[in-house]
Amino acid sequence: MTQNNSLSGHWLIVSDLDGTLLDHYDYSHAAVDELLQQLEQRETPVILNSSKTFAEMLELRRELHNHHPFIVENGSAIFIPANYFPEKSGDAREQDGFWVIETGLPRAQLLEFLRADAEQFGTPYLSFAEASVDEIVEATGLAPERALAAQRRDYSEPLLWRGDEEEKQAFVARVRGAGMSTLQGGRFLHLLGSTDKGAATLRLLDCYRHCRDTEYRLIAAGDSPNDLDMLRVADIAVIIRAPHRPPPQLRARAGQRVMISEAVGPEGWREAIAQLFP
């Protein structure tokens, strides 16, 4: 990766987790811990933006010593700590000490679609709603308690696809026809409402700019195709290499900088972000 000059002004870093801040295999974040502390001292917020659930994010924020807003379930909801900003967004509701802006659909509505679709087309997939904890552990490598947290979803449904590509594309078309969307992650096809990581990122960016009267600019970091919507909206898109697939293809828009790490996973995150904030 080419050496970049350090940045001036106010920046937000919005980051995926698995394969980015967390190791793809063992979920370690040791490689980035020191840099995260330095960013905190610089007052540069790191916003976690993942397919993970509210319960999973709470635990990870604690481990990462992160107290900033976060985005769950591939852009389906934004959680802002109560009183983080001077005022609450008009459409936010309060939950467990957070202001919540919901941009997706309730999981119950998604599961109802799956039930109706399965009656006609079958289920060439394993959904989290139907999976046992042991099956989720096997599919994800998560510890059982974290598998339980991953199963407690509010806005999306991960599907471990077991059919062929033709069946998948037909399913995706039916989802789109129903006004919903899918995202292909590193392991799962995610069913969700008409939202994505990029749309939620821009909504949160507006909150920062409005509530702090500061022209924040945006860095986004991710490693897989389901991060592309988030990467597209960033001023600087940081693509983290994965150990088992090529980097996702991002066509840079005018004025956008795209960086691709040499190292993989958290080491790649540290490599890229440290160049921007030496």
Rank of each mutant, 00 (worst) to 15 (best):
M1C: 03
T2M: 11
T2L: 12
I13S: 03
S15N: 06
L21Q: 01
H24K: 07
Y25R: 14
L36F: 15
Q37T: 14
E40D: 09
P45I: 03
P45W: 00
K52R: 15
E56A: 01
R61N: 13
R61F: 00
S76C: 13
Y84T: 05
F85T: 12
K88P: 03
R93H: 14
E94G: 06
D96G: 10
I101M: 12
T103Q: 13
L105P: 00
L105W: 12
A108Q: 13
F113G: 02
F113A: 09
L114I: 07
E119F: 02
F121L: 04
T123A: 15
L142F: 14
E145H: 14
A149F: 01
L159G: 05
L159H: 08
R162K: 15
E165P: 07
A170K: 11
F171D: 03
V175I: 12
A178W: 10
Q184Y: 05
Q184H: 14
R187V: 11
F188W: 01
L191H: 06
R203Q: 15
L204P: 00
D206H: 14
C207F: 08
Y208H: 05
C211P: 00
D213T: 10
T214R: 02
Y216T: 03
A221V: 05
G222H: 09
G222Q: 04
D223E: 11
D227C: 08
A234M: 07
D235T: 02
I236C: 04
A252S: 15
A254I: 11
M259R: 06
F277E: 00
F277Q: 01
